[in-house]
Design a protein around this nucleic acid. Structure first.
Lengths: 198, 198
DNA sequence: TTTTGACTTTTAATTTAAAAAAGTCAATAA
DNA sequence: TTATTGACTTTTTTAAATTAAAAGTCAAAA
């Protein structure tokens, strides 16, 4: 088994633990045990926990943007494109529950590089939203607007709901969570209504 | 000095401490000291901390709705009425900083009746918003809509931002806070745009 | 190149002890 | 009877110490 393949296996094992129990609550030894190796062997591929988490996040981020782009190109208009973004987010929350929690003081202290990369993801999503808006304007679906400003507001509002309902708490209970998604969609819809050209 | 007057003095002294240092961090002895009495004397008027906090909250709630109603009747239309609601909220955050924090597990555990009354306030604000929307519809300013649903969304969105920026943390730093208010206003404006009749 | 045993350091969880605050009540004064 | 207090008990917080667990290191070996 070559190195690339091995690191992939490790990342997948890490995701299973991280997504289910949270980064904080899973030990490197547990991940190593799952793979039938020792933590020292694991350390050979990933020098420390943060390095492993970075790789995990990178994989998920790639998956996320791939899905976002697929949905965006498939969407017939800006409105449905933005709503599908919520769907994608929802599916990621379902799939990677404990990895979706917001950046808290703990992550900032222990995993500063990961916290950094989260910021980049946020910025990238905001840029994506802005592009969707611009295409909507170009097609006459939406009124002209300051797309940067509006995309910021849209992104922040979505985040605020996530932060509010899910927060940095443990396992977000399924009912509260799906309620949150419904609410999120409702605000998004109201805002989009105001953006549409008459 | 008669009883009513005395309890008023106590409430005011309590507000000063609560609003500045938070309920949790101020002791009944401190409030009593400020008034030149002992905590036992204070206990004569308010049997426990929760009773005092209830009185404090009641006073502030009354002040809040009075101001809300003044602003609402003074506002020329629904749009400005809703935006002025944000101004009123902002002024209360400025004035009663530490008393404005969201209901957390701690308040729920120690001050259950206060937590209850907070829920009623939330419901009342949502009702107020719904009324403003209905008047806007009646005057032809706004499109017909499910006012209950929309008022819920508006209220929740405002709350989500507060929760997100201010949270249940200590002193919300002034810059972050005023930034929050600007953002809040931006979302509100976007949503209102979508509610307006063409 | 990869893995491990044996190790040190750091961090997290638990316990314990001390301090502070809340709450009680009989007595006392107005 | 109303209001207040001293002296008290109970509960909650805080701080310190202990312990346990996880992270990280490295020379030796496969």
């Amino acid at each position: 088994m070559e190195q690339t393949e091995k690191t992939e296996h490790i990342i997948e094992a890490a995701i299973k633990r991280f997504a289910h129990f949270g980064v904080h609550k899973t030990t490197l030894t547990e991940i190593a045990d799952d793979l039938g190796i020792t933590k020292q062997a694991l350390a050979y591929y990933f020098p420390d926990k943060q390095a492993l988490l970075e790789a995990v996040e990178q994989k998920i981020i790639t998956e996320f943007f791939q899905l976002v782009n697929e949905h965006a190109t498939a969407a017939p208009n800006a409105e449905l494109s933005l709503l599908s973004l919520l769907e994608v987010k929802k599916s990621f929350f379902d799939k990677y529950a404990m990895l979706m929690q917001q950046v808290g003081p703990e992550m900032l202290a222990n995993f500063s590089r990961v916290a950094e990369s989260r910021k980049k993801v946020q910025a990238a999503v905001a840029v994506h939203i802005a592009q969707v808006l611009e295409q909507g304007i170009a097609k006459g679906e939406l009124k002209p607007m300051d797309t940067t400003e509006v995309s910021m507001v849209l992104y922040e509002t979505m985040s605020a709901y996530e932060h509010c309902f899910v927060g940095r708490q443990a396992v977000p209970d399924p009912h509260t969570f799906s309620e949150m998604c419904i609410r999120q969609k409702a605000v998004m819809q109201l805002i989009i209504n105001g953006l549409k050209a008459n």
